[in-house]
């Protein structure tokens, strides 16, 4: 630590500018994108399908990274947005919402409506949470309660499939082209991941992102500068919810079915683990965290049947102790 302090001398203007420009994550993101773009050339269908799903979870993790890592909002019900996105998309494209027919029942309309409705829902929830000045564990408990309620509703609501969920979702189609093949879906999800990544990275690097981190670090101080912290948190919550809804809708598109487990407490905690392990303060690290943990889960459950969850627990504890900023967060932040 001492050597850090003595080596950094930066009255020079160009060096101070470098505070805003963090080259490494950008290069790593580009490298990762290149690998993913070329991946289908391996023609390994199993992994193409796997990666498509993993990226959906990755988008979900990135949305939580914004809310938790940058906004400092520990949300135990983030899957509510994921699940709502999946359900709303499904209900619309299956023509199950009265009044939504014709152009309103197309895939694109479904996707947009899902994202819009969920972010509006987040604004309403956020209004009560943040103007109610809920923080820390209290906020966690309330969001957890919301997740449990949402799951109960999904299980007991017969019209939306109840416990069994909804099946046979029509494929995503744009102007007559249907995304059915694994490769088409892969690229569709990859493009969505890239858009989500660029959007979120832009937000966290913008002045809004700096203010958000300032509020996270010291809310009283940020407010004394004239920033309305509740308002900033609500906006963050809504953006995070929108991206989570996008990933939920993508999940419905890729797996062609939705069920109450998508909306509940279980997935909400899982995504917290992915993001914590990957590195909650770095968008890309959270994405990689989701990929890593989900891959480990798949491998370990094949390898050691029921004991995998024990191993994962040990791995989680070790990672939190060894890498408090996340496994990837350490390398990807400047």
């Amino acid at each position: 630590m001492k050597s850090d302090i003595s080596t950094i001398k930066s009255t020079d203007i160009s060096m101070q500018r470098s505070v805003f420009w963090q080259p490494r994550p950008a290069w790593i993101a580009m490298g990762l994108a290149a690998i993913l773009v070329l991946f289908p050339m391996t023609q390994n269908d199993y992994w193409i399908v796997q990666l498509t799903q993993l990226m959906v979870y990755g988008i979900f993790a990135m949305s939580l990274s914004l809310v938790w890592g940058y906004g400092g909002i520990l949300c135990f019900g983030h899957a509510v947005y994921f699940g709502m996105g999946a359900y709303i998309y499904t209900l619309i494209v299956k023509g199950m919402i009265p009044g939504f027919s014709g152009i309103l029942a197309t895939s694109i309309a479904g996707l947009l409506t899902a994202v819009l409705c969920v972010s509006l829902f987040a604004v309403v929830v956020g209004y009560f949470l943040f103007y109610g000045r809920l923080k820390g564990p209290y906020l966690g408990i309330v969001t957890l309660a919301i997740a449990v309620i949402a799951e109960r509703i999904a299980v007991d609501w017969y019209y939306i499939g109840g416990y069994n969920g909804l099946f046979s979702i029509p494929p995503f189609s744009v102007a007559g082209y249907e995304f059915i093949t694994p490769i088409a879906l892969f690229y569709f999800v990859l493009a969505s991941s890239a858009i989500a990544y660029l959007l979120l990275t832009h937000i966290v690097q913008s002045p809004f992102g700096a203010i958000l981190r300032a509020i996270r670090d010291n809310e009283a101080r940020a407010e004394s500068f004239g920033y309305n912290s509740a308002q900033h948190k609500i906006i963050t919550f809504a953006i995070g919810a929108a991206v989570a809804a996008l990933s939920g809708a993508l999940f419905a598109i890729v797996t062609e079915f939705v069920s109450p487990t998508l909306i509940g407490f279980g997935l909400s905690t899982e995504v917290l683990i992915w993001v914590a392990l990957g590195g909650k303060e770095v968008i890309l690290a959270s994405f990689l965290g989701a990929l890593l943990v989900r891959t480990l889960e798949t491998y370990l459950s094949e390898l050691m049947a029921y004991y995998w969850i024990l191993f994962l627990g040990v791995f989680f504890v070790a990672a939190v102790i060894l890498f408090p900023k996340g496994i990837f967060g350490r390398w990807l932040s400047d």
């Binding site: 203010i211 996270r216 010291n218 004394s224 500068f225």
Partner: peptide, 25 residues
């Protein structure tokens, strides 16, 4: 009452954003 995780430069920068006419995004 400082922002611990932000750099010294960014700590001073945060209060200036209130004067920014462009969108904060």
């Amino acid at each position: 009452g400082i922002f611990n995780q932000l750099t010294v430069y960014d700590n001073i920068r945060v209060p200036f954003f209130r004067d920014q006419r462009r969108s904060l995004f």
